[in-house]
Design a protein around this nucleic acid. Structure first.
Lengths: 184, 184, 184, 184
DNA sequence: GATGAATGAGGCTTCATTCAT
DNA sequence: AATGAATGAAGCCTCATTCAT
């Protein structure tokens, strides 16, 4: 995965993948049909934690405010993105998706659609509870996570030019949606 | 450019580029040192219209409201993205940026930093005029264009699973920022 | 053997051989030094029945006419060739002989020279008994079995374009040598 | 061709072919799609002289006896086989035919069927002229060329064990068919 | 003795780059 | 200046062979 992230599909050499994995080149072919299959399987595998986190993170336990749920979710998402390679995987999917429709499909099915559904549910709850004023937001849950996505991309492309405090940006974004947070 | 967009840097063949350009393969080397130079030059060239549009689009003429300026800018941005390949160029930069720091740098310098500066100025104007309530937004102009970026990526990856009305999404986003638009 | 016949030496995979033999790949190496040794041993083994048949088939028992002996021999040869893979082994030897001199040598020693000696003896007996007029035939016993060989090759190469009645062809050939057969 | 003859299709290395041809490996791919295409084209090319010879050799000019025509044909056939690699090509086709149906088909169409038709016509002429007694021979023209084919195969497999005088063998065979040649 | 996962040398094929025309 | 045939390095993939279990 590290190799694919660093170089993209086409530029990654199986030689390097094997070396990094500590096996011989031929061994790869005992487990994967070819380079494409390897790539797709790796992506699938890498996505699983994202899926799990979505499942766990978005069912708000009883007394919590919707904002807290979303903020907690985003905070852990951003934390992972900045400390692990998870964010690069997202970028990799953006990069290779058009050439690997199966990967894009899988990602859409397992992550995007589920994630958006969860966020939409949270938004609707927020509206019902009066936490969110803006009713139309439920139609475009993408808006809610857009800054997080931007942060991911920013991280891998521009971080060295201009560091971005993703958490702070997300907080400001949530303020827009939930209204200024009254100082605790 | 079409070839690079469709296949990415590594998977693009100069044979195909030459054919598409209607010249012989050798001719490319009369104008570019190698494949990398060709790629970087093409990206540079492709970015110019974006730069120009930024310059033109973001200096609000006299009496217009800030929201109208931004909405007009986003609308034309989205229009281009959905009708031309311009959006794919952005995706291409996201994809190849890490392997082409020069491209990422150039894009940051020419497009991102200028664009963000322009948007920040617009935001500050909006705040000054009382159109925008949320003062902290000026610190993170990325929030304002985030949905447009998401739309670009969505377009190339998921459009066939779930079409996205980018204009409508952006309008909802602006409603968040400027407050519900009173019907004219 | 089936695998070698179907694909030739170089294109045959030991994986497939092992699978077909119902053993693991490693097991082959408990019995044969390497792929070449396996091939040579198999050919040797496959040739044995041919050798035996030659021994049995060509010592004419008392009262039979030479023509009947040869015709019987050819008939059973052709029968085997058309119903079993025996004929393909001959073709395989023709194919791989130049690269496996030991195989060619072995085949010459065990089959060809013995077979020709037997046929020559039969021819000489036929001449002595007055069944065969043409004395020089004894110098070229190859002539006698030539059509049978042709039939073998024809079978594997051209059967689907033009089926060949090998028995009938061989009968006509014998008529040439022994004279028109008086109807029994 | 030399390489394919010496090693067969699978065992031939394009490296060696290129070296022998005095070009770089890549150059082969400017002219042939892949190794198979190269092989098939080469075979096609190699067969052309055989086809031509058939066309020229088998239309008996006016006053010649059928036997002389056939003997002349066979003699030049045998001459070529023993002095050039032409015979090995036939053996190569026998060897690789089953794995290259197109090659076998082509060979059948261009050489075998035409050749047999020509020989059958010659046989029928011989019968009409009273040179050939045995009428059924016309049904199996293969019988006539069988010894020549055997000679070809013998040459590449067994020549070093037991040289074979192909011309003399063929003469004896013709004596069988046309009757003992009266000494001129 | 048998297994079959692992190895890595070797072959086919691609394609960026060169250069004689 | 333009061409495109030729090059050969490099990468994917196969498969004979080994060896720990």
């Amino acid at each position: 995965m590290e190799e694919f992230i660093a170089r993209g599909f086409a530029a990654t050499r199986l030689d390097d993948v094997a070396k990094r994995a500590g096996v011989a080149k031929g061994t790869i072919y005992l487990h994967f049909k070819d380079k494409e299959a390897l790539f797709e399987e790796l992506i699938r595998l890498a996505i699983v934690p994202l899926v799990n986190r979505l499942g766990a993170g978005l069912s708000p336990p009883g007394g919590t405010s919707v904002r807290d749920v979303i903020e907690g979710f985003a905070r852990s998402f951003i934390h992972e993105v900045t400390t692990t390679r998870r964010g690069d995987i997202v970028r990799l999917i953006v990069a290779e998706g058009p050439r690997f429709p199966e990967v894009a499909d899988f990602y859409y099915r397992e992550v995007v659609s589920k994630g958006l559904a969860g966020i939409r549910a949270a938004i609707q709850l927020g509206i019902a509870r009066g936490e969110i004023q803006h009713q139309e937001l439920a139609q475009f849950p993408q808006i809610l996570i857009a800054p997080a996505m931007i942060a991911v991309i920013w991280q891998s492309l521009f971080a060295r030019h201009a560091p971005l405090d993703a958490n702070e940006m997300f907080r400001v974004h949530l303020d827009l949606i939930f209204g200024e947070r009254r100082t605790t």
